[in-house]
Design a protein around this nucleic acid. Sequence first.
DNA 1: TTTCACTATTCGAATTTTCGAATAATAAGC
DNA 2: GCTTATTATTCGAAAATTCGAATAGTGAAA
Lengths: 304, 304
Amino acid sequence: MDQLSAMRAFVRVVETGNFTRAADSLQMPKATVTNLIQNLEKHLQTKLLNRTTRRVIVTTDGALYYERAAQIVSEVDELDASLAQAQNNPGGRLRVEMSGAFADWFVIPALGGFYEKYPDIQIDIGIGDRTVDYLAENVDCALRGGAPADQSLIARRVAEVGLMTCAAASYLKRAGIPESPADVQANHHCVSYFVAAKGRTNPMTFRKDGEEILVDGRYHCSVNDARSYVAAVLAGHGIAQVPDFMVREELERGDLVPVLAEWSADTIPLYIVYPPNRHLSNKVRVFVDWLVRLLADIPAPGQS
Amino acid sequence: MDQLSAMRAFVRVVETGNFTRAADSLQMPKATVTNLIQNLEKHLQTKLLNRTTRRVIVTTDGALYYERAAQIVSEVDELDASLAQAQNNPGGRLRVEMSGAFADWFVIPALGGFYEKYPDIQIDIGIGDRTVDYLAENVDCALRGGAPADQSLIARRVAEVGLMTCAAASYLKRAGIPESPADVQANHHCVSYFVAAKGRTNPMTFRKDGEEILVDGRYHCSVNDARSYVAAVLAGHGIAQVPDFMVREELERGDLVPVLAEWSADTIPLYIVYPPNRHLSNKVRVFVDWLVRLLADIPAPGQS
DNA sequence: TTTCACTATTCGAATTTTCGAATAATAAGC
DNA sequence: GCTTATTATTCGAAAATTCGAATAGTGAAA
């Protein structure tokens, strides 16, 4: 038996004093109300309503039951509504994963605009490039460079990050300016970026006129955080391909100097990734929408 | 959808962390649990549980829902139990109708024994011979003389009350002692008992050797309460047939004197009457049982 | 990498519930 | 006292749900 429906029906019958009106207001056939209440009485082993075909009168047991049943029914409705409400006026905690660079450069500076629009959402930003257990940590979505290996995740491409080959002025003064990708491989040091998930370093890419050269040079230092990566380059540990948006100021000041500018580096596609929930919560949807618009403003590679 | 079952299932899944264990403990197939929770999520438009085939993890929305749902489910269970409890340990108010004579002579004096056994039952005794609206007044049962006219009521015969023809000594001294029923009809006054429901007085009956004579004599005073009826007889208003148990003392003292003792009066069958409830509440059952045992001790007519 | 053990989901048959119309019953009005 | 308007209940067809078995998917171990 659907006890909650039965309780609803009973409460309504008591309030309207009438099976027919109760059935109408619940938008169900009278027969169903009759059935529900008969089953409820069978379940409780008590007569709740004394009824002739003309009148319905609440028994003492029924009156007792009504008080609490009405309260419970309204509690359930309230609970249902509170979740529906949460859908329309999203709130609560939102767990997001991204790299520190994106957080520091784009998300955190712009977050004020998001708070204004959705004051009830708290955002927990997890920094790192580790593949997290989305389920176990209740991660709602992640901002990731490169297509995700996990095919079961939904990935939405949102931007393209340009890489720029450069090195610290101090390094070039000491080690000389490389003439070609092969020169880099043979006679220079790099700052290497490794991806913990893959367990290997990312080679540098040099592309020109359809020719592609991968360089996996010697390095003193390898990191898996773009900010530290830039720091390592600035410290003169070698040549590297860094996201162009991160080094604009350093290039202008001359602390960093472009290298092999006639060769273009790869670009990194940026994805928003989230688990394939049947019902994507509205909280996540509005954040993803906001993030998409935010990142649309990243200048296309090569236009910086 | 059976939302309450769905909430029960969800709560159990959260507590066991596992669909299979939840299904086992609820004694339903796993398929049903799956279905219920999918429907619940559809209804709430929110994903409550993140699940792979190996793990089930509660979402933030799910955790929120769990707290309140668990509370509501336990409230419902408690409410159900409280009504079942009331069945086993009957309590509350019990509305009973009976005549004042039965109340004063039998029920009220013996009620102490009932209270001891069922301290939680409060008995509201309605005095009167009016046919009450059982439904409207929530009357649980009634003790009535004579078979009830209303065929829809359940009547249980519990005792037989003997009537005794007598008159006050003072009356007989004044009016003389009647020789036969016809003498009563012709030359005496009666104290008459009228039944409000029937709208007419009850004739006296005289029976001997298969002969039956009805006497509907002249009267100065007619009442519809046995105690007042006896009082009228004692006051010398005439001859009457009164319940024998009510006049034992008066006969012994000689205030009342038997009349036409060779003619026997009718006896009045005593019924417990209650509405035909599909589920007779335990409260009523225990009272009726008690009443039956109590009235079984009324001496059979003619043995007093 | 492959296998294996375990778990949620899907699927079709069977049961239960729901629905609209017909029926039975009651209390008021004439 | 009879008729009528109104109401709860019953009934059979249709829809939904439940159930047990089979399936598909997952994560750990070999």
